[in-house]
Amino acid sequence: MAGVLAPTPWAPRLGARIVTAQLFLLLLALAAAVPSLLTPVDPLQADPLTALAPPSSEHWFGTDHLGRDVLARVVHGARFSLGISLAATGLALTAGLLLGLAAGLAPRWLDELMTRAFDVLSTLPEILFALLVIAIIGPGTANVVVAIAIAQLPNYARVVRAQTFVVRRSGYVEQAVTHGHRPWVITTRHVLPNVLGPLPVLATIGLGTAIVAAAGLSFLGMGPQPPAAEWGAMLSEARNYLRVAWWEAFFPGLAVTATVISLTVVGRRLQRRFEGRPSERGVG
C-alpha cells in the first residue's frame, strides 16, 4: 500500500586495488626506513663468481653483472627514490604554495606576470625542464631534488593561486576586514589554511611523477653516482646486459612502475574522497 521510490544508495566499495596499492606503499616505506629488515644482504657486496646469476632460491631477483644481489639493491634503492621524490615534492609544494599565495594576493600586474611565468614553465615537459636545470646547476643528488622541484612547482602554484582568489573574495575574509584585522592576520588565519585543502591530494599524485623524474635523471647519470643502488641508475647499468640477464633491469623497472601506479591509485582515491565525486567505473 505504499509507493516507495528508493534508488540504490551509493556505498563506497573497498576495492582490492586500493588495498594492494596501500600495502605496497607500506612495504616501500619500510624498505626505505629499515632496508635490513627485508634483506640481510649488503647491496654493494660484489661477488664476481656469481655474476649474472638468474633468480633462484638464494638470490630471489638474481644477481647483476658484478654479482650483487638485485633484491638487496632494489630494497635499498627505495630510500634513494623515495627520498629524492619526497624532498623534491616537499620543496615544490612549499615554494609553489608561497608563490601561488603571493600571486593570488598580489596587485594585478604582478599576478599577471607570475601567472604567465607559471604558464611558460608548465609548457615544457617536466623531465626536459629538470634536465635544463641540471645543465645549469650540474649533476648530483641534491641538484636532482632541486631540478625536479623547480619543474613541478608551477602545478602547485597555479592551484594555490586559483584557490587564493576564491578565498580572498569570500564572505569570511570580508568579515575579517570589517573587524579591523591586519592583512597579515587575515592571510595567516583565514587565507592560508583554507587554501591548503586540495594540496595533499595533488602532492600524492605529484610524488609519483617525481619518482619517474628521479629515476629518469639517474638513468641519464645525473643523480646518485655508482655504485649507489638507485633504481634509475640500476636500469642504466643493466641495459648493457639486457639480452643475457633480463632480471637485472626487470626488477628495478618493476619497482618504479609499481610505485608510480600505487601512488596514482591512492592519489585518485583521495581526490575522489575529498572532492566528493562518486566512484567512476574503471578507475581506482
Binding site: S170, G171, Y172, Q175, V177, T178, H179, R189, N194
Partner: peptide
C-alpha cells in the same frame, strides 16, 4: 573598523568554515 559591524542575510558565508 570595530566600531561599525555587519550581519548579513547568510551568516554561514561570513564564517570561516574551519
Amino acid at each position: 573598523r570595530p566600531r561599525i559591524q555587519v550581519i548579513s542575510q547568510n551568516p554561514l558565508d561570513s564564517f570561516d568554515p574551519r
